[in-house]
Design a protein around this nucleic acid. Structure first.
Length: 113
DNA sequence: GATATGACGTCAT
DNA sequence: CATGACGCCATAT
């Protein structure tokens, strides 16, 4: 059986699948999580993830922009730089770091069966 | 059920 | 690039 995960759960798992040094946009995460068009729910899921250890810093807005404001934004950029992610004009170089999720199918954390 | 919120995306001005 | 507007919808109260 394929117990459907909650929005939050599927989204968090998707974000957790982003490897180090790579990034993805809210929209792409939403799509990869099976919720195309629900980018806002990604943001919400990340709120719920406050205590979980997921690479939240690898989620960016369209165009590779950090949407967080204030210290949170600076913190996110710092974490990304620690992963050798390069920036250009306050934006992540998506042409070098954009992560492409499993296009063949969303087999996130279930490849083993 | 209704109202408010949010780490969004896209288009128009 | 900045601002306003609309679409989107789970979650919270």
């Amino acid at each position: 059986m394929v117990e459907r995960l909650s929005y939050t759960e599927s989204i968090l798992r998707t974000v957790a699948s982003i490897p180090r040094g790579r990034v993805a946009t809210y929209g792409e995460v939403a799509r990869a999580a099976g919720n195309p068009g629900k980018a806002r729910q990604v943001a919400w899921a990340l709120h719920c993830a406050g205590r979980r250890r997921i690479p939240w810093q690898r989620v960016l807005g369209s165009g590779g922009k950090i949407l967080l404001k204030g210290e949170s934004g600076l913190h996110q950029r710092l974490l990304l730089e620690l992963e050798e992610v390069q920036f250009s004009c306050n934006r992540v170089r998506m042409d070098r770091h954009e992560f492409h999720f499993d296009r063949a199918g969303r087999k996130l954390a279930s490849s083993a069966g």
